[in-house]
Amino acid sequence: MTSPIEARLAELGVTLPTPVAPVANYVPFVVSKGMLYISGQIPVGPNGVEYVGKLGDTLSIEDGRAAARLCAINILAQARAALGDLERVARIVKLTGFVNSAADFGDQPKIVNGASDFFVEVFGDKGRHARSAVGVSGLPFGVGVEVEAVIEIA
């Protein structure tokens, strides 16, 4: 039987991928005191790393939003690996979005909305969260966006 969250993902046309393994000396998630901390996820899709470039230069706002959404999908893949069932997500507590930005780019919040909007689409009010959207001069593999999450476990 499909859980309500898995059914909602199917309605949105989203299939969660196999979680990406870490590429350095860290773990993809940590569970501690009823909270799930998910390491920064980059936009890795079925064909590998996607959305390489800088926002405000080679990537558009639409590209950045799509990249952030893909990061959020990868966060859910890690959450399912950690918890076994996405029904155990009590709330998305906090997102931090890092946006690889050209020097004069100031629309980081619009980019990270790609992840924020996705979590609200999937979880409703449980998907509303605190958030930071930070412009940076570079990200791993040259991607445009990286997003990390803190999730309360039910």
Rank of each mutant, 00 (worst) to 15 (best):
L9F: 05
L9Q: 06
A10W: 02
V14K: 07
L16G: 12
P17A: 10
P17E: 11
P17W: 03
P19Y: 05
P19R: 02
A24W: 09
N25H: 13
Y26L: 02
Y26C: 00
F29C: 03
V30N: 08
S32T: 08
M35E: 14
M35G: 07
L36C: 10
L36R: 09
Y37R: 15
Y37F: 15
I38V: 15
I38H: 05
S39Y: 13
I42A: 10
P43Y: 04
G45T: 04
P46M: 04
N47M: 05
E50L: 10
K54W: 10
K54A: 15
L55M: 13
D57R: 14
D63T: 04
A66C: 04
A67Y: 01
A68R: 08
C71T: 07
A72H: 07
N74I: 05
A79R: 09
A79I: 02
A82E: 02
L86V: 01
L86W: 04
R88M: 07
V89A: 04
R91K: 15
T96A: 10
T96I: 14
V99C: 07
A103V: 14
F105C: 05
G106C: 08
P109S: 00
P109N: 04
K110A: 15
A115H: 09
A115W: 09
A115T: 06
D117I: 11
E121K: 15
F123L: 15
G124K: 01
H129K: 08
H129N: 10
A130R: 14
A130Q: 13
R131N: 10
R131F: 12
G135E: 05
S137T: 14
F141Y: 14
G142Y: 02
V147C: 00
E148W: 08
A149K: 01
I153C: 01
